[in-house]
Structures are given as C-alpha cells and as structure tokens.
C-alpha cells in the first residue's frame, strides 16, 4: 500500500497505542477482563496491522522470523519453568504458593504474573508466525478464480 498516506500515518499512530493496550491487558488482567492470551493476540494484531500496511518485509525486518520461533518456545518454557521451580522448592507442580511460603497469596501473585507472561509470549509468537506463514506464501490463483 505504497500510496495510502492516510493509512500509513494512522497506522504508525495506532501501532504504538495497540502495543500499549496489549501491555495494559497483560498486566491488568488481575483486575479486569484479560490476561496473557488476550494480550498476546492484541500484541500480534499490532504487528499484523503493521505488516498489512507497510508490507511483510518491513515487519519481518522489525521482528525476524527466527526470533519469533524462539519466542514461541520460550513462552512455553517459561510457563513450565515456573512449575518446575515449584517442584524444586518441594511443592507440587504449579503450586505458586511455594514462591513465598510465608504469605501464600503473594506467592500466587508472583506465579500468576510469570505464567501469564509465558502465555503472552507464546501466543504473540504463534500468531505472528502463523501470519508470516500465510502472508509469505505467493498466491497461486488461476485467472478464472477472480
């Protein structure tokens, strides 16, 4: 969309706002609807919007596919890692209370923040990776399909 001046300006303006909103959803999920998954999707949508308007190469320059793939795995590992940490502390898998045994709900808070971060990272990565996979494929349309 080379000549869409209005779209390009508005998109530049919006992408930042969307990412900000994604962080709000990620970290305010305790108090209002939202959480890691939704934040991840919103974050991915910001990059998808950027890709739609400025082109796939531009957005892949900002966020290269190999980093996306690492992020996808990292999020899952972060989530599982919290659980493994609980196990190492001598409690059940995903027993966040172990992170602060004297004050259970504090431990729960810490655990929830970390696992939500894991969810967010994976979902962002996967959604962007799927978008790259679909958008990066040259269409093979016959003339009669149009």
């Amino acid at each position: 969309m080379q000549h869409h001046l209005i779209l390009r300006v508005i998109t530049k303006l919006l992408v930042g706002m969307i990412i900000l909103f994604a962080f709000y959803v990620q970290f305010h999920g305790d108090f209002s609807p939202g959480g890691g998954f939704q934040a991840g999707v919103i974050m991915a949508v910001a990059f998808i919007l950027y890709g739609l308007v400025f082109g796939l190469e531009k957005v892949q320059g900002v966020f290269p596919p190999w980093i996306v793939h690492k992020l996808v795995a990292l999020g899952v590992l972060l989530y599982a890692g919290v659980g493994v940490l609980n196990m190492l502390l001598g409690y059940e898998f995903l027993h966040y209370g172990s992170l602060d045994p004297h004050h259970m709900s504090h431990g729960q808070h810490t655990g929830i923040i970390w696992i939500e971060a894991g969810v967010g990272i994976t979902v962002t990565g996967v959604m962007i990776a799927i978008y790259y996979a679909f958008a990066g494929r040259p269409p093979r349309l016959g003339d009669d399909d149009w």
């Binding site: 969309m1 998109t11 998808i48 919007l49 890709g51 308007v53 958008a135 040259p138 269409p139």
Partner: peptide
C-alpha cells in the same frame, strides 16, 4: 476498546486483500 481496535484491523485486512489479493508483499 478492544473491539474498536480489532474492527479497524479487520477492515484494513479486508481492503488489503481486495487491493492486492494477498496479505503479503505481492503487489
């Protein structure tokens, strides 16, 4: 707020699709 946002992105995707018949860089 989320709706307002997603709706915009959806519309842009549709138009990109119509203008260039693809979501990627294939003008």
């Amino acid at each position: 707020l989320l709706y307002a946002l997603i709706n915009f992105v959806g519309t842009i995707a549709v138009l990109k699709f119509f203008r260039y018949r693809a979501l990627g860089d294939v003008p």
